[in-house]
Simulated scan of single mutants.
Amino acid sequence: MASTTYRALITRPVLSWAAVAVAARMPVAMAPLALVFLVRERPGGYVLGAELAAVYVVGEVIGAALLGARLRPDRARRHLAGGLGAGAVAFAGLGILPGAPDLVLGAFALLAGAAPAASPGGLRALLTEHVDTGLVPKALSAEATLTYAVWAAAPAAAGGLAFGVASYAPLLLAAALMALSVAGLWALPGSWEADESDRAGVSVIRTLATAWPVYVSGAAAMSLLALAELVLPALLEQRGLAVSWSGPLLAGYSLAAAAGALLYGLRSWPGRLSTQSLVLLLGVSACVAAAAVIPSLAAVAVALVVAGLLQAGLQVTRALGLRAVLPQSALAAGYSMMYSAVGVGYAASASLSGAVLSIALPSTAILSGVVLTLLLTVASAVGEVRLVRAKAYAPAEQ
């Protein structure tokens, strides 16, 4: 029987995939902060930077939904190379023309977000469809760990280059890395197998729509992350604690999430995927709520570490959940749709917390965001019950 330990993933194809994934995702992780640093010295630069970052995220959401639905197993490399290549050009434009008019920078930011937005789903499909079935949960856990590591390193890389070299340096690095990821695609399989009979006569959109409860729970999970990231500095100030603690606290969250992803893949867990997801989502909600109401810095730190551990497992269950409800031919598009959904969840939570912060305390803003998450959780749970009745929703394969 094939080995089902993490060691079995240490192969040349998987390591090549990891190198391409890092090169493709580091620019994405650096982009919002790099855009703020790019224009911060202009009059009103921080406002413009926030607007460019928002345009970038909108581009990601739109690109993931529209381009992800067009991914085809037999033309995967061509689609991914085109999107990543266009993204590299857009990042290069931002870095080479930092003094361009606002509208030009906005157009580049939109393209940089939208063009490569299908690549996370396509790369995940290339990973999971070319490892043994028994290794898929561990492959997804390892992917989540890699993602959290990239997101933990990206702010330091963007800040170090912007302040140590030049304001446009992070964007030039992003362009170079994304161009390298295009070249690296030729070290990976060019496609994956798909049984088109799984969805014969059914449109891609209708096929993807059947998994809506999974997307909703993904959006709920990301809304919690938005609360932790965006409201934490204000919460610390409300408690009379040093705002400078927000960086170490969020770093602890990211490190805990990386560890949690590996932990989830180490063993089999009881219950159906939908049940696991519900329990983890409620656990993360409880941790974020505890951080809002307990004034101790140590308690906030513990709550965020536990939230990170649970959040990572939640991310893996959602990816496995898509595999359980979508045909193989639609998986890459489904992963991209999930990427779009979590972007919407982040934006919705950010908007709600920002609105509440203008009239109430930061702790109240966090609790209002938790309420939004719980509403999304209820909707997702009801939808997944219907999915279970319509189709056997298998427990996580370990």
Results as ranks from 00 to 15, higher is better:
residue 183 A to R: 10
residue 170 P to D: 03
residue 217 S to N: 07
residue 169 A to R: 10
residue 201 G to I: 04
residue 171 L to Q: 05
residue 218 G to F: 09
residue 205 I to S: 04
residue 188 L to V: 06
residue 211 A to T: 04
residue 191 S to D: 11
residue 197 S to A: 07
residue 168 Y to N: 13
residue 202 V to W: 06
residue 194 A to V: 02
residue 152 A to Q: 05
residue 194 A to L: 00
residue 170 P to Q: 01
residue 168 Y to W: 13
residue 178 M to V: 08
residue 203 S to A: 09
residue 200 A to S: 13
residue 192 W to N: 11
residue 188 L to H: 04
residue 203 S to N: 08
residue 191 S to F: 03
residue 181 S to N: 09
residue 182 V to C: 11
residue 198 D to K: 07
residue 185 L to M: 11
residue 188 L to R: 04
residue 204 V to Y: 02
residue 154 A to Y: 14
residue 181 S to P: 09
residue 217 S to M: 06
residue 192 W to L: 09
residue 208 L to A: 03
residue 191 S to C: 07
residue 211 A to Q: 03
residue 150 V to Y: 00
residue 155 P to E: 13
residue 199 R to A: 09
residue 152 A to E: 10
residue 204 V to T: 11
residue 159 G to F: 09
residue 199 R to K: 05
residue 208 L to C: 01
residue 212 W to F: 06
residue 195 D to T: 00
residue 171 L to Y: 00
residue 201 G to T: 01
residue 150 V to R: 03
residue 173 L to D: 11
residue 187 A to W: 12
residue 172 L to T: 00
residue 196 E to S: 00
residue 162 A to R: 14
residue 168 Y to V: 10
residue 185 L to V: 10
residue 211 A to N: 00
residue 163 F to T: 15
residue 183 A to F: 12
residue 214 V to K: 04
residue 186 W to V: 14
residue 206 R to S: 08
residue 201 G to M: 00
residue 175 A to D: 09
residue 220 A to N: 08
residue 187 A to L: 15
residue 157 A to G: 07
residue 170 P to C: 05
residue 198 D to E: 14
residue 155 P to Q: 12
residue 178 M to L: 15
residue 157 A to F: 13
residue 215 Y to E: 01
residue 208 L to W: 01
residue 176 A to L: 11
residue 163 F to S: 14
residue 213 P to D: 02
residue 165 V to M: 12
residue 178 M to S: 11
residue 191 S to G: 10
residue 192 W to P: 03
residue 171 L to C: 01
residue 176 A to W: 07
residue 185 L to P: 09
residue 212 W to I: 08
residue 200 A to V: 11
residue 152 A to R: 08
residue 151 W to G: 14
residue 149 A to T: 15
residue 190 G to D: 05
residue 195 D to V: 09
residue 219 A to P: 01
residue 202 V to G: 01
residue 151 W to H: 15
residue 156 A to T: 12
residue 164 G to W: 10
residue 204 V to R: 14
residue 211 A to H: 03
residue 217 S to E: 06
residue 185 L to G: 13
residue 183 A to L: 13
residue 222 M to E: 06
residue 161 L to M: 15
residue 187 A to T: 12
residue 182 V to G: 10
residue 149 A to I: 15
residue 150 V to N: 12
residue 181 S to K: 08
residue 150 V to D: 06
residue 189 P to K: 02
residue 207 T to W: 02
residue 211 A to L: 04
residue 205 I to H: 05
residue 193 E to L: 06
residue 210 T to D: 02
residue 169 A to E: 12
